[in-house]
């Protein structure tokens, strides 16, 4: 009996972790450009254990400026500023009568902002997601983890990859910081070259790289690497 309880308990933990992992609040608009004002979209994939999302608070990391939240899928937007008037958090809140009885919807929350002039860096936006169940009870999930180790119970913060501004066609860059997550930074590029090594998130192009004599797979970039990127 004890063993059955243990198994059921473990199954419950796994189910809970799995549910939360799916409820990831993340950047849905792809990488941002350094030192450029642009629209960034936060996607709210799920609510909390079946309850609809009622409020989302996004903390603004240092260096991000020109914050202009948009009303988005939730009606009301509030901003918090520090003593110097810098926006440090943005909160979107649904009207009480707009909260759904169940977690059935995907939401997009938009923010116009200027990323710092730090290309090839990663910005983390801690997010606090509050859900309200049909019985009125509220649950808050904190998405605040930054570079957490594998298996950590801390939910990951929304991650924004910052790149130099680029244009359709070929772009030549010098990498400012080492890059391990090529998919995160270059998922929307046709191909990336560093010397005779190439990366593409497109599986067909990846196969062609492997089949091309003289070319090999690019898996990471070091600071100072000169790269060609085609969009």
């Amino acid at each position: 009996m004890k063993r059955i309880n243990l198994i059921l308990g473990l199954a419950g933990i796994i189910l809970f972790v799995g549910t939360n992992a799916q409820a990831h609040v993340s950047i849905a608009s792809g990488p941002a450009f350094a030192n450029v004002t642009q629209e960034v979209t936060f996607g709210v994939g799920h609510g909390c254990q079946g309850a609809d999302t009622y409020r989302v608070q996004v903390e603004i990391p240092a260096g991000v400026s020109s914050i202009r939240p948009e009303t988005s899928d939730f009606g009301q937007v509030d901003i918090e500023t520090d003593a110097g008037g810098t926006v440090v958090a943005v909160t979107w809140t649904k009207a009480d009568d707009a909260v759904l009885d169940a977690d059935t919807q995907y939401y997009k929350l938009l923010l116009r902002m200027k990323a710092p002039d730090q290309p090839f860096s990663t910005l983390y936006f801690p997010v606090h997601q509050t859900c309200r169940a049909a019985d009125g009870s509220e649950t808050t999930v904190d998405w605040v983890g930054i570079d957490e180790p594998e298996g950590s119970m801390v939910e990951p913060a929304a991650k924004l990859f910052v790149l130099p501004q680029h244009f359709p066609g070929w772009n030549k860059f010098t990498v400012a910081n080492a890059v391990d997550d090529l998919k995160g930074f270059f998922g929307d590029a046709q191909i990336v070259w560093a010397g005779n090594k190439a990366y593409s998130s497109n599986p067909t192009t990846k196969d062609l790289i492997a089949a091309t004599s003289g070319a090999s797979a690019l898996t990471s970039l070091a600071a100072g690497d000169e790269i060609w990127v085609r969009y």
Binding site: I191, T205, I209, A211, T212, S213, A215, W228, R230
Partner: peptide, 18 residues
Amino acid sequence: PPAGKLPCELIPPGLSLK
């Protein structure tokens, strides 16, 4: 269309692969 190797559109300026 590509035939077993990368098309020239995906080779950057100045690179020569042998």
